[in-house]
């Protein structure tokens, strides 16, 4: 099975005294471009990490999830995917992890056309992409540490590797000392941190978050977004679907705005920059 050969420690934690008031630690950037790992299905190369080419996704009958979307996301970017409910954000994300296949057009992740990806390879795609959801999707009968360890066991890591990586990643997301708590004993923000830790523990190149702050209060949301940003600084590409205007406005990152399955804006800035010009595609 796919096993990461790790001579180096799983995660290097570096003390950072400045700004981030909530989090004292930062991921040391892993060597980028990342070494090609065994079982890594991404093709080496400098092309965009995520590439949508004329993607149309029709659900049964005429209802369109996506209606001709073409976009590139490069390695190392931090991208917000915004738009009202039903605009196609979730469809976009589910296409990325091949929970859905496009009706036409192609979705290319890490140089791999997902339309041509054999079903048996899909698990390897998912290992290369970390996923975080609004509802956390934690296993209720397992502790924080067990939930994170699970992602490592599934990908065939040894117990030693699990023992080494899990505490490191949990302290990275700010959950030191809470390893043995069950999800129901943690706050929403803490649960989301566990789910981010789980998404990160396999060292994905792409982290996708679907409404990660949808269930959280504004202050907790900021903490989560800060964490995602720090993860992005280590070289991990981050794609966040959200309708949390406040956060998007504050972060001033690239924003792809979807409406009725089409990209109506793609620019740096806030959620509603130039609210009038919905027809413009940057």
């Amino acid at each position: 099975m796919a096993r990461i050969e790790q001579e180096k420690p799983a995660f290097t934690l570096v003390e950072v005294p400045e700004d981030h008031s909530m989090d004292a630690m930062v991921l040391a950037p892993p060597p980028q471009p990342a070494r090609r790992r065994k079982g890594d299905i991404f093709r080496p190369g400098n092309g965009p990490l995520v590439q949508f080419q004329g993607v149309i996704k029709k659900y049964d009958g005429e209802h369109r999830g996506l209606d001709g979307v073409s976009v590139n996301i490069n390695t190392g970017e931090f991208v917000f995917l915004v738009g009202p409910s039903g605009s196609g954000k979730s469809t976009f994300i589910r296409l990325c992890i091949r929970e859905l296949r496009p009706t036409s057009g192609s979705v290319i992740i890490g140089g791999r056309d997902l339309g041509e990806l054999r079903r048996s390879k899909v698990p390897y795609l998912r290992r290369a992409i970390g996923c975080v959801f609004q509802d956390f999707r934690l296993l209720p009968d397992r502790t924080a540490a067990e939930n994170v360890a699970y992602a490592l066991q599934v990908t065939g890591h040894s117990r030693q590797e699990v023992r080494r990586s899990v505490p490191a990643i949990l302290s990275l997301v700010g959950l030191e000392g809470k390893e043995d708590r069950l999800p129901r004993e943690m706050s929403g923000g803490e649960q989301q941190r566990v789910s981010i830790a789980r998404a990160l523990v396999n060292q994905p190149r792409l982290l996708i978050a679907d409404e990660p702050t949808g269930n959280l209060d504004p202050e907790t949301s900021l903490g989560i977004m800060d964490l995602l940003l720090r993860i992005n600084r280590t070289g991990t590409t981050v794609l966040v679907a959200t309708h949390d205007q406040h956060t998007v406005d504050r972060m001033q990152m690239r924003v792809i705005r979807l409406d009725q399955g089409r990209i109506v804006r793609d620019a740096e800035g806030g959620y509603h920059e130039d609210p009038g010009d919905t027809g413009e595609i940057a």
Partner: peptide, 13 residues
């Protein structure tokens, strides 16, 4: 949910 999570983190069938 467990199966869903397993697939999410890339468990083979």
């Amino acid at each position: 949910r467990e199966v869903e999570v397993m697939r999410l983190v890339g468990a083979t069938n």
